[in-house]
């Protein structure tokens, strides 16, 4: 047959032996269950908050050691001294008041920036001109430091919340719009067609299909925007003092640096860090857990 045609001359093609067939019932399952419990240390290690707490403790210990070795409270107060100053000023209500002022302005500017970013990106996904508008504006204004706009803001809106909100919007809007737009464009074509197949159009299409499908990018943009807003606010207060009359955390840091209370400067920085951790690990984490983690869009 074809054996001789395909094999080379003289080569012997090995042929497997024909073995008997058999049928059998699968053997009983070993043990009582096919699942096994994970050991306690492994289970503990699966908690992100525990791992992060360990990292924080490690950093605090390192700080304490370096500060003790250096031994100059004016340059680097120890972790315990900072903690003491921190709780003192929480107790007398200075830090909570300042933080409340900062967060108040921050939230106003942030929300306005998010709304504007949403409007811009919705325009960008629905028309070619909107797309060009967004990409041009983003490439022009995204590299511009918000602080550089503050003098202009002070000129236009005066020494009040207005000028701070103006720069906050600027710092939130562009990175968020960029992320949101990237998210919208990366929604799979099949899913878009599915949405149109349902008969969805316009805003309903954006809210019911595009926004949830692009949520990983949108949340990333929200996080970046939040961090940018914090930086801008603190920097604005450090550079221009209490521009809103009621000072925030930046103003607190600025004042205490002038009076060489370095431990209070660190306490102010700690406030910023703690608020950042709180928002990141409570607000954004919860948002992620209820949405993109639950839906399996991210790990």
């Amino acid at each position: 047959m074809s054996d001789t045609a395909t094999a080379g001359p003289g080569a012997i093609r090995p042929t497997p032996p024909i073995r008997p067939e058999y049928e059998r019932i699968p053997e009983p399952i070993a043990g009582s269950s096919i699942e096994r419990r994970v050991s306690l240390p492994q289970r503990l290690w699966q908690y992100a908050w525990l791992r992060k707490a360990l990292i924080l403790i490690f950093l605090a210990v390192m700080w304490e050691i370096v500060a003790r070795l250096q031994g100059n409270d004016l340059l680097l107060p120890s972790f315990t001294a900072t903690l003491q100053a921190f709780f003192e000023d929480i107790g007398n209500g200075i830090i909570p008041g300042r933080a409340a002022n900062s967060v108040d302005i921050l939230v106003k500017g942030y929300v306005a920036g998010v709304v504007l970013a949403f409007v811009l990106t919705s325009l960008a996904v629905s028309s070619q001109l909107g797309r060009d508008f967004l990409s041009t504006l983003t490439s022009m204004l995204n590299p511009l430091p918000p602080i550089a706009l503050l003098p202009l803001g002070l000129l236009w809106f005066g020494l009040g919340q207005g000028s701070l909100i103006f720069v906050l919007i600027h710092s939130v809007l562009w990175p968020l719009a960029l992320n949101m737009y990237t998210g919208f464009t990366s929604v799979p074509e099949t899913l878009r067609m599915t949405g149109r197949n349902y008969g969805l159009r316009g805003l309903r299409y954006v809210f019911l299909i595009l926004v949830p499908a692009a949520l990983p990018s949108i949340i990333a943009g929200l996080k970046i925007g939040w961090a940018f807003a914090w930086r801008t606010l603190i920097a604005a207060e450090l550079v221009f003092g209490a521009s809103s009359g009621r000072g925030g955390v930046g103003w607190y840091i600025f004042q205490n640096r002038n009076e060489l209370y370095t431990d209070r400067v660190f306490a102010g920085l700690m406030t910023v860090i703690l608020l950042g951790l709180l928002v990141e690990n409570v607000l954004f984490r919860q948002l992620e857990r209820r949405t993109i983690l639950k839906w399996g869009m991210t790990r």
């Binding site: 799979p188 099949t190 899913l191 067609m193 599915t194 299909i209 949830p212 499908a213 949520l215 949405t291 839906w295 399996g296 869009m297």
Partner: peptide, 8 residues
Amino acid sequence: EFDQLPLW
């Protein structure tokens, strides 16, 4: 494609 179902 399997990505035709909204994951949310």
